[in-house]
């Protein structure tokens, strides 16, 4: 983090260069005859939504809860959308309703303005009051985009327009309608450890994300802040909930975390492992201890998939 103009702290927004393209994953599934796939480290499950819309049964899991709630909106949910008046009830501060005024005060003047903190509080209450899992997931997704816009605006204050919070959130939640569709298959998401998710699910293939090698071993600040928002606790420390071995600071730690996943994933006929040119050889060497045949789909240096059977 760095200190921006005034006293506000500007988050260093990570590049997130690792690519897992939904359309490329679909190509791979089609090539290898995959009809049922699980991603136990799904993250934001927009790629599973794409595969679902293409007729593949998809299952996802993540230890971060808001990813799973979004999954209930765009992976499990086949038909429910948020109508315009319902979006209005989420994004606006309802007249006469009493909101906890200081739920996100810890972020005030640090990451967000007073007004933004009020809205985060109101949105939290309004979304928690929704009764449909599907609608809740869609609302969390739309508000996440608004939240990410605010952080981007903090980093580039002169480049991005000031949009009234409720207008911004309204536009983004309205966009979620396009993610809802039915593939006439059973799709599921699971909140918990990737290992447990793999043990309890049957599928033709598993998308297995190798741990990321990172010097500072941190997860994306945006991800944990939004988890903190969903939990209603700005002091929440998300690190214990991050998938074990999702990040590794040294190769030994990386190996031990990945070996555990590969062991559990043996039950799936096919393993699809997204990687990059820099990591490819490390991943393949370890993979050979578990799988005899390995094919490669290389789309670019940042986007390579090893297909192990």
């Amino acid at each position: 983090m760095s200190v921006g103009n005034g006293s506000t702290i500007v988050l260093e927004l990570r590049d997130g260069r690792r690519r897992k393209s939904a359309s490329h994953l679909y190509e791979i599934c089609r090539t290898h005859g995959v009809h049922n796939v699980i991603d136990p480290f799904m993250g934001l499950p927009t790629h599973l939504n794409y595969l679902k819309r293409k007729g593949i049964a998809v299952h996802g899991a993540d230890p971060i809860e808001w990813f799973v709630r979004v999954g209930e909106g765009i992976v499990v949910n086949d038909s429910v959308i948020l109508r315009d008046f319902e979006i209005g009830e989420i994004v606006d501060v309802a007249p006469g309703r009493i909101y906890p005024p200081d739920r996100f005060r810890a972020w005030e003047g640090v990451f967000f303005t007073e007004e933004q903190c009020h809205y985060l509080s109101a949105w939290h209450e309004n979304v928690k009051a929704l009764r449909s899992d599907g609608q809740t997931g869609l609302a969390i997704l739309g508000l996440w985009w608004a939240f990410a816009y605010w952080l981007q605006k903090m980093a580039c204050p002169d480049d991005l327009l000031d949009v009234p919070p409720s207008e911004l959130a309204y536009a983004y939640i309205q966009k979620t309608e396009r993610w809802v569709g039915d593939n006439a298959r059973h799709n599921s998401v699971f909140h918990g450890s990737p290992t447990e998710a793999m043990e309890r699910t049957a599928a033709d293939a598993v998308i297995l994300t190798a741990p990321e090698m990172e010097e500072d071993d941190r997860s994306d600040a945006r991800t944990w802040m939004w988890e903190a928002w969903w939990k209603g606790n700005p002091y929440q420390n998300v690190e214990p909930h991050v998938a074990p071995g999702a990040h590794a600071a040294d190769r030994a730690g990386w190996r031990s975390a990945f070996v555990e996943q590969l062991e559990v994933a043996r039950k799936f006929p096919l393993a699809i492992i997204p990687t990059s040119a820099a990591e490819r050889d490390h991943v393949e060497a370890l993979l050979r201890e578990f799988r005899s045949e390995i094919a490669e789909h290389r789309f670019s240096a940042e986007e390579i998939y090893l297909i192990a059977s």
């Binding site: 690519r19 939904a22 990410a148």
Partner: peptide
């Protein structure tokens, strides 16, 4: 912002 298509890259 990740709301595009087809891959929702951001």
């Amino acid at each position: 912002d990740g709301t595009g298509y087809p891959d929702q890259l951001h």
